Amino acid sequence: MGRLFSILIILVAILGAVFASTMLFSVDQREQALILRFGEPIKVVNPWDAEEDPGLHMKAFPWEDVVKFDRRNLMLDIPPQEITASDQERLIVDAFARYRISDPLQFYKAVRDVRGAQARLAPFMEASLRRVLGGVKSNDIVSGHRAELMIAIRDAVNTQAAESNLGVEIIDVKIRRADLPEQNAEKVFSRMQSERQQAASLIRAEGEEKARTVRAEAARTVRVTLAKAKEKSSILRGAGDARRNDIYAAAYSKDPEFFAFYRSMEAYEKALIDGKTSMVLSPDSDFFTYFSSKKK
């Protein structure tokens, strides 16, 4: 009796192991599983766009198969491409893309596995690189609007993948480097240097023109200011002279003899101020009236 019981336990254990191996499967949190029935996909376990459901799961029938795909972002790396920009400059562009399996059912139907997906996506990536980068100048690719270009490439690849129903989504595209071929580098650098020199010359010319304008305006302001100052000084001098003449006239009218004497003294002072003045005059000249001993 005890021996029969032991045999039953062993049989149950074997049947349990067989059941577990054929009916149960585990899914890692980094994976999403696709259940196949007679080769046809019927259900997705732990898809990336739903709440995580990793752990132990059971199949409905033992003849169902389980195919697992990565739930994480995947890398699409293509060889460096030679691109001709819109200004006819050639560039060697090294780029890569990151994508994820957004629809495992469609992914399995379209490409079966990651290798098949990359074989389909690589031509899309290369074509989008050539189309987008071929429509802009080399300066924009090397150091200009690279971020906008990468977004445009990503959208172009996404569009082609959606039209082909690959069940993937391109997350982003990155350009590692965009270099000139060695044979073209020196020529392009010389041209860029020439363009920078032309731009610098234009800036200097504009600065010199502006400086001339400022100097001319300053000179005009100085001339106007001096003219106004001379005009005002002339007016003040004329008013002073008129006032002086009025004072002289008033003094003359009060004492003509003293006024004549004062004016003669002023004339003597101005004529003989340095002490070396030589004058040839007649002794009876009116200039020396007040030097004589008697009055006329």
Rank of each mutant, 00 (worst) to 15 (best):
P256Q: 05
S26M: 15
A219Y: 14
S201A: 11
F124K: 00
R243F: 13
Y268P: 02
Y262C: 01
S143C: 13
S278Q: 06
L180E: 03
R30G: 13
D113M: 01
L91S: 03
G2P: 00
V224R: 10
S282V: 04
Y290W: 14
T213L: 12
V168M: 08
L149G: 00
K109Y: 10
F61Y: 04
R112H: 05
S264R: 09
W63A: 03
I78N: 10
A13S: 13
F189G: 03
P62F: 13
V188H: 07
F288Y: 07
F124I: 00
Q32E: 09
G55N: 04
G16V: 12
P79L: 05
K109G: 01
A271P: 03
E269Q: 13
R243G: 02
A229D: 11
D140E: 06
I151D: 06
F124L: 14
E182Y: 00
T84R: 14
F258S: 10
Y248A: 01
E31A: 13
S128Y: 03
S194F: 10
G207W: 08
P283K: 06
F107K: 04
W63V: 03
A162C: 04
I9A: 01
A20Y: 13
V12Q: 08
L202R: 12
D246R: 08
Y262G: 09
D28I: 08
I83E: 09
A200I: 15
N165D: 01
D28H: 13
K276D: 05
S164R: 06
P181N: 14
L24I: 15
I170H: 05
G275Y: 00
V67I: 15
L91Y: 10
R237W: 15
L202C: 04
E163Y: 12
S102W: 07
P62I: 12
L34T: 00
G135H: 06
Q183T: 04
E206C: 01
I101T: 04
P181F: 15
R223S: 05
M75Y: 12
M265I: 03
